[in-house]
């Protein structure tokens, strides 16, 4: 099992201009599958291929883009068990425990979110995928051991039916008239 030890990227204030936004609107559904995908994007935007690459590079450096590459669909690849694991963590320990959990490669998301009392007491959320429930449960146990989470109030919510799934659409594409 791999555990990443890279330091978390520091978040810097990000300024996106209109061209960045137009570029995002074009690439949010994926790069074109053709010989020169960046040149194709550049042509639609009326900028150079080099500028497209440079803007994507800047967005990566600024942390706007987390990664670029093949985006797989877990469920379709046989990773059918998916649990949202939630903890109620004292506020002054959330960041430390979040960073511990976020490093495990089978954890696909790890976020702090607000509690909504009295209905919802949990403030640390993570997502764990596996081929079956037993695998997911054993990974949860291991996480609890490694990050010393056993004493915290916790809940596990397995996913069931999927009613809708598609990539996020951040920007409406500009209508060019």
């Amino acid at each position: 099992m791999k555990v990443t030890t890279f330091p978390q990227l520091l978040r810097r204030p990000v300024v996106l201009d209109d061209t960045d936004r137009a570029l995002i609107a074009l690439v949010q559904k994926g790069l074109p599958l053709c010989h020169e995908p960046y040149a194709k994007l550049a042509m639609s935007l009326g900028i150079t291929e080099a500028e497209v690459m440079q803007r994507l590079q800047s967005m990566m450096q600024a942390g706007v883009i987390k990664r670029m590459g093949v985006v797989v669909r877990h469920h379709e690849l046989g990773y059918r068990a998916n649990a949202m694991l939630v903890f109620d963590v004292p506020d002054d320990r959330v960041s430390q425990l979040g960073r511990c959990i976020g490093r495990f490669e089978f954890v696909t998301l790890c976020y702090r979110r607000p509690r909504r009392l009295p209905d919802w007491p949990y403030n640390l959320f993570c997502m764990i995928h596996g081929k079956d429930r037993a695998t997911v449960l054993s990974r949860i146990d291991m996480l609890k051991d490694k990050c010393q989470l056993h004493d915290l109030p916790c809940d596990v919510l397995f996913s069931n039916r999927q009613f809708k799934q598609r990539g996020a659409i951040y920007m409406q594409q500009q209508v060019i008239t």
């Binding site: 990000v14 690439v27 559904k29 883009i65 093949v70």
Partner: peptide, 20 residues
Amino acid sequence: KTISRVGPVFRVNTVGASSL
């Protein structure tokens, strides 16, 4: 539908707003 796309994965809330 094995992959949803080849391309960038954006960090939540740096582009637009999103929530659970």
